[in-house]
Design a protein around this nucleic acid. Structure first.
Length: 574
DNA sequence: GCCGTTTTCGGCCCGACTGTTTTCAGTCG
């Protein structure tokens, strides 16, 4: 858990205590601040280090008071007010709140009436039916049963991390197809964070337009493992693969407003609703209303239009300034999923890949790619298996030239060279200058202190033959934190030296990530999307890199591989 | 406690489902 998650957890807990104390509004403010911290792209300590308290106050939902508390935590490792507040409740209390269905109110009643202080107490009380027998107002057998289910769920999934976008998207698309296959189902769409293509997903929101009675048929589909709730317009299911899906049945006339609402993000929707209130309108999942009259709702487009806003693509809806720009009709035209023509990071079996150049090229052609950059690892004595020596790379260059002379798909001659500890590269300039594209990446010394790491990468970027900085932060989702590096300095250098930043599309890398892409765009950097394929099937991961670019507000002009081959080669050969 | 093209004071998103007290509070998204 990083610093910002730690602070967010404290804020959530403070919100719980204030709610018990019946304090008005503050709990919501603390929760909003906590959510805001969790979704923060940058490192909270970096922000504080660079811009101080003022920088913290720029974070949405953080004002003067909370900024102070955050700085106190960063400086001293604790928040005095929290240390005082937390003594009012047993330390295990906050764990109980993580059980689905258990909120502050219920947990507090159980603590006060039955002395339940932690999850262990709770489980014991439930199993011995102490709660239902106690006669406490509002707690009977069904409540007990639900707590037990919640406990089981927490035990099973509590440690389970959010799933990768790539694991969820195909399953959700498959479920959507099955729903559309039910007789009488007119429309079905993925909403929620999955529609916004977030890098990780907790659960899926699915919208369906059909007769309400058909919800039972959906609950009986073969992919469905368990039904956890079912009403006339909503059902919650868990698929056999363990994916949580919330399904909502929506009438035709409010399909667009429902899609808008359930796509979120929550912050985007709340911001939108506030604008509505100012205009004397009301927006809900049932439509946009003036008084009782529905003035829009069938499509998302007509809702945004009625509010005087440009239509924002789902990937933009994070309340990161898109609403303000949409008001002024100044939203960027973000990169389209069909606009990327090639893949700029592919490995063959010459280094650590599994497929031959020919197999990769053929599969890329099937996927509609126009060009492909082969960037096998290069250099001797590397911590990377099978890196190519200068001789082997020279041989590969000849093979590619021969291949290109009689192939429809164009192969760029490239290499992924290693940035060594001192900032030098794993291959000499004499071979680099013979390549079309040189990607430089860090593959060792991930624990370097920030200054050493930044210096090392900056030094490597002074090499005249480097065209792309590979996976610039080194993070691997669920496995490895990004290494400490001053990205602002890297971005400045990248613009100065005209080096593109990779958006590595491999599903557990996605590096740069969305917020860093947006930051780099402020520095006017260019990007190269690459799948980092090691097997030909990986070539289809391109979509996840495009999603990151879109979420980072990049346009086709900002992304090298959205350019035609000639323009790309000209840029690379400057 | 945050926030500002009506406000530095006075607002703060909206609705479904659940269990239970059969009218509504709690929880969730």
């Amino acid at each position: 858990m990083g610093k910002k998650e730690e602070i967010a957890e404290i804020f959530y807990n403070i919100a719980s205590i204030l709610e018990i104390q019946n304090v008005q509004w503050k709990p919501a403010a603390y929760r909003k601040a906590a959510r805001s911290l969790e979704s923060l792209g940058e490192d909270i300590e970096d922000i504080y280090k660079e811009k101080g308290i003022k920088g913290l106050e720029e974070i949405p939902g953080i004002g003067e008071r909370l900024a102070k508390k955050i700085s106190e935590y960063i400086e001293t490792g604790r928040i005095k007010e929290w240390e005082k507040l937390k003594k009012t409740l047993p330390s295990g209390f906050y764990e109980i709140l993580k059980i689905p269905g258990m909120g502050v109110k219920k947990a507090y009643v159980l603590y006060k009436k039955l002395g339940i202080k932690n999850i262990k107490d709770l489980e014991k009380a439930v199993r011995s039916h102490k709660i239902s027998k106690s006669g406490i107002f509002g707690f009977k057998e069904k409540t007990e049963e639900n707590i037990l289910q919640g406990l089981e769920f927490l035990k099973k999934t509590g440690k389970e991390e959010r799933k990768l976008l790539s694991q969820v998207l195909p399953l959700a698309q498959q479920l959507r197809e099955q729903i559309l296959g039910i007789k009488g189902a007119r429309k079905a769409d993925i909403a929620g964070s999955l529609r916004r293509m977030k890098e990780t997903i907790r659960d899926v929101d699915m919208l369906v337009c059909c007769e309400e009675k058909l919800i039972s048929n959906i609950a009986r589909l073969p992919v469905v493992g368990r039904v956890t709730a079912k009403g006339s317009t909503r059902a919650s299911i868990v698929t056999k693969q363990g994916l949580q899906v919330d399904i909502r049945v929506v009438p035709e006339e409010s399909y667009g407003s429902a899609l808008q609402y359930f796509t979120g993000s929550k912050e985007h929707s709340i911001h939108l609703r506030k604008i509505c209130i100012k205009k004397g309108l009301k927006l809900s999942e049932y439509g946009l209303f003036r008084g009782k009259k529905r003035i829009a709702g069938e499509t998302e487009q007509e809702i945004y239009k009625a509010l005087g806003l440009q239509y924002p693509e789902p990937e933009l809806r994070e309340d990161r300034g898109e609403i303000e720009l949409a008001m002024k009709n100044k939203l960027p035209k973000i990169l389209g999923y069909n606009e990327v023509l090639g893949d700029l990071h592919v490995h063959t079996n010459a280094s650590d890949g599994n497929n031959t150049l020919q197999e990769l090229a053929q599969y890329a052609k099937v996927l509609g790619r126009k060009y492909l950059a082969i960037c096998d690892h290069g250099g001797e004595h590397l911590p990377i298996t099978n890196a190519l020596s200068v001789k082997e790379l020279e041989r590969q260059i000849k093979i590619i030239d021969k291949f290109n002379s009689k192939s429809e798909i164009f192969i760029l001659k490239g290499a992924e060279v290693d940035i060594l500890a001192n900032g030098s590269l794993s291959l000499p300039d004499s071979i680099l200058k013979k390549l079309d594209i040189v990607m430089a990446s860090v593959h060792s010394g991930f624990k370097f202190p920030e200054e050493k790491m930044t210096f090392r990468v900056l030094k490597a970027m002074d090499n005249p033959y480097i065209s792309v900085l590979g996976h610039p932060t080194g993070r691997i989702i669920h496995e490895r934190e990004p290494y400490k590096i001053n990205l602002e300095k890297i971005f400045e250098k990248a613009r100065e030296r005209q080096i593109a930043l990779e958006i590595n599309a491999f599903p557990n890398r996605l590096d740069l990530n969305d917020t860093n892409v947006k930051l780099a765009l402020d520095h006017k950097c260019k990007f190269a999307i690459g799948t980092d394929s090691h097997v030909k099937e990986h070539l289809s991961y391109l979509v996840y890199g495009i999603a990151v670019a879109r979420r980072g507000w990049a346009t086709a002009n900002d992304v090298l591989n959205a350019w035609p081959k000639e323009k790309l080669l000209k840029w690379l050969r400057r």
